[in-house]
Amino acid sequence: MKTLLTLPSLIAVLVTGVPTSSPAKDPPRQKLQFLVDGRTTRAMVWEALGNPSARYERDRIQTYRLAGKEQDGFIIRDQPSEHQCRAPHLSWGGTSHSLVLVFDAAGTLRRHSLVKVN
């Protein structure tokens, strides 16, 4: 009787298998050591971080939305959707920092700051 009860259970386990989860691929992380005032260029920033999330004063000031911690490297957050652009939406969910970069007329980084927003 015991065998009769155990056998279907064993078959069920074999058929269904043990659930496994494939490790989720982590998005690339970016450290910010390459940002050096007076040395880093706008092209280097674009190469490393992609499109900024916002631009001001004819691209003199650019911002990026970041997630994570400085020591682990940051994940560059997706830019806000078109919807958010049209109707201001106060959503900073998932974003931990705002990186603000100020360039000079030649496109060289003059000042920058990492602002914790969340």
Partner: peptide, 10 residues
């Protein structure tokens, strides 16, 4: 404006 952005972010 630059100082406000550097202080408060985007």
């Amino acid at each position: 404006r630059e100082e406000v952005l550097l202080t408060l972010g985007e």
